[in-house]
Structures are given as structure tokens and as C-alpha cells.
């Protein structure tokens, strides 16, 4: 272990995967060393005034001691993250957090990834494949440009099904359609793993419920500490309050109170929008000032 109080979480690679989706490779040797599929980190861009947000670990490079984070620019912190460059550092990376996915040989596993949910889904799907399962991946997005990591998924999956809302790639369908077909077939899967927007995970759960196929979902709720201390991430699962950070992030999709979770996720949306608008306003002001100086 180094003698430094905090690792310098340097950004080694920064790439825009689409207009609002970004990939960062960040130096975080201990997270890299201990992470397992299904786990996440909490990151912050400023230790005094920053916010701690959970991001799933999409990949890791042990030689480099780095982890890969893929995120969508939606709020203030993801916007600030997207504005960082190679050589900049994150203020904090805490992890790995959460219970790792239980990987076992089951037979056939269907992994559904919606939008950037493909990023956390990939290491899980890969681990199921390596454990000897037949792995079918369903990737969904609004359009072709928003499908991420397709090549990487194809490199190990037995079958890949692409769905887009507008039909610009693969089937013009929601991911629930092929999922339902697979689960209703005679040779039904032994497990479904669905990761993506909350509403997608909800409908995937509803789609498989009548078929009797078990479904695991990975929840991405609001968190502050990520270690079980605040309870901000709590969600009702099977009538019990669970903390996503320590009890999850994975739960039985059939037991999750989706509507309760969705309303909790909107808790700060009004304030968040204001913060983001302020930030954009300041950026525009700064740009205007620069322009004026020229």
C-alpha cells in the first residue's frame, strides 16, 4: 500500500461514446484489484463541494490498475465528469461497493442491457459465460447511435439481439419483446439479468413474471455514502426496506416496489435542474467573457 492518504484517481482515457454517453478509464488500483462483477463505486469531482454519485464498474485493466466507468450526462456531476480531460483527476473514488453478482452455472442466462445499462451488464454476462452458461444478450437503445459496446458483447455472447425504438438497428422493438419470446419458448432460460433504466427493468420483470423465469435487476438509486449509513437508497423489496448500497445493488425484479423507487429517484429533480442550469449559465458567461477578450 502506498503511503499517500489518497490515491490520485487520474483519468487515463476519456471518450465520448455518443452525444451524452462518456467512458472514463480512471487509475484506482485497489478498486481494480478487488472489484467483482455487479459492483459499483461512488465518485466525486470535488472533496469540499462535490456530490457523491454511484457508477457501476464497466471494466478494469489490472496491468494499468484502472477501472472503466461509463455514464450518461444527465445531472450536474455527470456534466462535470464529462468536462474533465485525460490527466485530470477525480476527487474521490470509493469502492468496490455492493454485493457482487452470484455467478454460477445455471444453463442458459439472458442478459438485458438498456442504454448505458449495457456497461454494467457486460462484466456480469461475461462472468456467466466463463462459468459455462449459454449467454444471450439483448441490447436496447433509442437508436443505433446509442447502442454501446456491441463488439465487446459479441466477442463472448452466444447470441446478441439488438433492439431500437426507431428500428435504425436490429429489431424495431422494446427489449421486452424478444425477452418475452425467449422466456415463453420451450427451452426457456434459467435466469434473466436486466440492467438499464428503472422503467425498463420494471417492464422486463413484468414480462417474465408469468413465465416463472427468475429475474435479477441492478438498481441505481440516489446515494450519499454508499456504505449503509444514510438509507437514502432504500427501496421496498418484497415488503421489506432494503438498502441498495449494502443489500444490493441486485434484487429479485419480481419483488421490487418499482413505483416507490421511481418516485424516490425524482426526489431532487427540480433542484438538480436548477443546479445544472446555473452551471451551464456560468459556462456560457465564461465563454462570452473569453470571446469578449479576444
Amino acid at each position: 500500500m502506498s503511503a499517500k492518504e489518497q490515491v490520485d484517481y487520474k483519468i487515463l482515457h476519456h471518450e465520448a461514446l455518443s452525444e451524452n454517453v462518456f467512458m472514463l478509464r480512471v487509475y484506482a488500483p485497489e478498486v481494480c484489484r478487488f472489484r467483482r462483477p455487479g459492483q459499483f463505486v461512488l465518485v466525486s469531482v470535488d472533496n469540499d463541494y462535490g456530490e457523491r454519485i454511484p457508477l457501476t464498474i464497466a471494466d478494469a485493466d489490472e496491468k494499468e490498475g484502472s477501472i472503466t466507468l461509463i455514464f450518461q450526462r444527465v445531472g450536474l456531476t455527470t456534466t462535470l465528469l464529462s468536462e474533465l480531460a485525460v490527466g485530470d483527476s477525480l476527487a474521490s473514488v470509493l469502492g468496490p461497493l455492493g454485493q457482487p453478482t452470484k455467478i454460477e452455472k445455471l444453463g442458459k442466462v439472458v442478459c438485458v442491457g438498456g442504454g448505458i445499462g449495457v456497461a454494467p451488464m457486460r462484466p456480469i454476462a461475461k462472468a456467466f459465460k466463463e462459468a459455462g452458461n449459454e449467454v444471450i444478450c439483448i441490447l436496447g437503445a433509442r437508436n443505433r447511435d446509442l447502442i454501446i459496446l456491441e463488439d465487446k458483447i459479441r466477442s463472448f455472447a452466444d447470441q446478441v439481439i439488438i433492439c431500437t425504438d426507431d428500428g435504425s438497428a436490429g429489431r424495431k422493438a422494446l427489449v421486452t419483446e424478444p425477452l418475452k419470446e425467449l422466456c415463453e419458448a420451450e427451452d426457456k432460460p434459467n435466469l434473466v439479468v436486466a440492467i438499464g433504466p428503472t422503467i425498463m427493468m420494471k417492464f422486463c420483470s413484468e414480462a417474465v413474471r408469468p413465465t416463472g423465469v427468475p429475474i435479477i435487476v441492478s438498481l441505481n438509486t440516489i446515494m450519499v455514502d454508499g456504505t449503509g449509513m444514510c438509507g437514502g437508497c432504500r427501496v421496498n423489496v418484497g415488503g421489506q426496506t432494503k438498502f441498495v448500497c449494502v443489500d444490493g445493488p441486485e434484487f429479485d425484479g419480481l419483488q421490487v416496489d418499482w413505483d416507490g423507487m421511481m418516485s424516490r429517484m425524482k426526489a431532487y429533480s427540480g433542484q438538480e435542474r436548477k443546479m445544472l442550469e446555473n452551471h451551464q449559465c456560468n459556462l456560457e458567461k465564461a465563454a462570452a467573457e473569453l470571446e469578449a477578450r479576444k
Binding site: 470535488d46 456530490e51 462535470l80 450519499v224 431532487y268
Partner: peptide
């Protein structure tokens, strides 16, 4: 814990400056 952590550690009382709400 959540309320006080947001307010104390994450300085949410400095509205407009702290990213934590």
C-alpha cells in the same frame, strides 16, 4: 444520518455552491 450528512459533510447548506442537495 442522511439529512445531517448532506448538510454537514457535503455542505448542502451552501445552496448553489454545493452539488449535494
Amino acid at each position: 444520518n442522511e439529512y445531517l450528512t448532506r448538510a454537514s459533510l457535503m455542505r448542502a447548506y451552501e445552496r448553489g455552491r454545493a452539488a449535494t442537495l
